[in-house]
Nucleic acid binder design. Structure first.
Lengths: 129, 129
DNA sequence: TTGAATTGTATAGTGTACTTGTACAATATA
DNA sequence: TATATTGTACAAGTACACTATACAATTCAA
């Protein structure tokens, strides 16, 4: 599978963060596994309609999180991640807040609680551990 | 109750959006109800440590969403909102994506699925309808 | 009725973040 | 060993967030 992701250039979320988010999804769900190679920054950038430096920034984000190893010439490779380093409580709070705000915005937009729960389980599905 | 909210100035999420998020929470949960007055932008701004224009931007955001009515001299007042206007599919997708990304980041940080579900229910709790 | 105080609005300025352009360094490959 | 491939570094342009300041509409006390 050639890694097909897409981003929304009209979104207020910066492109490099969207790219990181979508790639993180493939990593968390196991569609990309240790040893797998990611496409070169220039190729993915062309596919998504952004500059390759924008993709490179996303790769660096994921490398910092421990998902990837980057090397010029060799490209980006998924590495064994082990136990995620314990996040700072401040960072933990932000993650929980992001979830809460997402739910609140959906409620405010009129989503039934049912459907929100469904969306949640979709997001949890396929996640190992 | 004097409306006590707090924001995180170190967060990458812009202050005006955090303020709107926290206020939306009080609105969705019914802690602020139609007819209630919000604090003047200058007062809330002082409380939060930002410029009053930043608070004003948050108020405008919520006014656009149909929660508030703004008038100089009178201040910001919660209005009856009725049925939320049907969001554009594009906007709907973004809401669902935000939820998905929040969950994925929590998983990536090592949160057990259990606790994520708990956080979700905390966010849903107290929500009418 | 009037004038001062209160409250949101408008607009310009400043700093920061995002994206791009371009040159470069390290690795792979023919 | 030369060339292509791949990520990196850094400067420039643009958009966004926040602030400063002046302003307009409303409220309220004298």
């Amino acid at each position: 599978m050639p890694l097909t992701i897409s981003i929304d250039l009209g979104s207020p979320v910066p492109a490099y963060r969207q790219i990181a988010d979508r790639l993180r999804e493939t990593l968390v769900t196991g569609h990309l596994r240790p040893g797998d190679a990611l496409p070169p920054v220039r190729q993915l950038a062309t596919d998504l309609g952004v500059h390759f430096n924008t993709v490179a920034e996303a790769y660096r984000t994921l490398a910092t999180e421990g998902w990837l190893m980057l090397r010029r010439g060799s490209g980006a490779v998924v590495v064994e991640r082990g136990v995620p380093p314990p996040a700072a409580p401040e960072q933990r709070d932000r993650l929980a807040l992001a979830l809460r705000d997402a739910v609140l915005k959906m409620r405010a937009a009129g989503w039934p609680a049912e459907e929100i729960a469904i969306e949640l389980h979709k997001a949890l599905k396929g996640t190992p551990s």
